[in-house]
């Protein structure tokens, strides 16, 4: 899924992606943008542990090769409830000068890990257009 945000000038955009995994990296924006809030849920239960939300300041990164600019662990669920990550950056948004792409798997760094085994990661982002 590719989303252009150039037409938005005033309001934050809330983007939802319920199919985020390593093999299907999402390219959210092709130009500068700011992320003011992140909400992510790990729908996998128990093993293999956390999945990592990896964020790239890049409109077209190569999964497993391009170094992520941010990587946050999302805890595993317990079989009944999802593990969740909530981050608020309204005071100082995360700035992505070159576009924004996301991916998730069970490895925190650059290399490819194992994609979420049973259920993809759900992400809701609040995005503002422009770098400032």
């Amino acid at each position: 899924m590719a989303v252009s945000i150039s037409e938005f000038t005033r309001f934050a955009i809330v983007q939802e992606d319920n199919c985020l995994n390593g093999a299907n990296m999402t390219k959210y924006a092709y130009g500068p943008c700011r992320v003011t809030a992140i909400h992510a849920w790990n729908q996998d239960a128990g093993a293999p542990g956390p999945n990592f939300l990896k964020m790239f300041d890049n409109a077209d990164p190569t999964w497993g090769t391009t170094a992520p600019d941010f990587s946050f662990p999302i805890p595993a669920g317990d079989g009944t409830e999802y593990g969740a990550l909530h981050l608020d950056f309204h005071d100082e948004p995360l700035v992505f000068e070159n576009g924004l792409s996301l991916g998730a798997d069970d490895a925190g760094g650059t290399a490819t890990g194992t994609a979420p085994s049973a259920n993809d990661v759900l992400v809701v982002l609040e995005i503002l257009p422009g770098a400032s």
Binding site: F72, E81, A84
Partner: peptide, 25 residues
């Protein structure tokens, strides 16, 4: 070693990160 969390901090900036992680059912 593969890091478990990575946070970029802009040139000349201060970055705060705080998390409230929980479960939803």
């Amino acid at each position: 070693t593969v890091p478990d969390m990575i946070i970029r901090v802009g040139a000349g900036k201060i970055r705060s990160v705080s998390s409230t992680r929980g479960t939803v059912s």
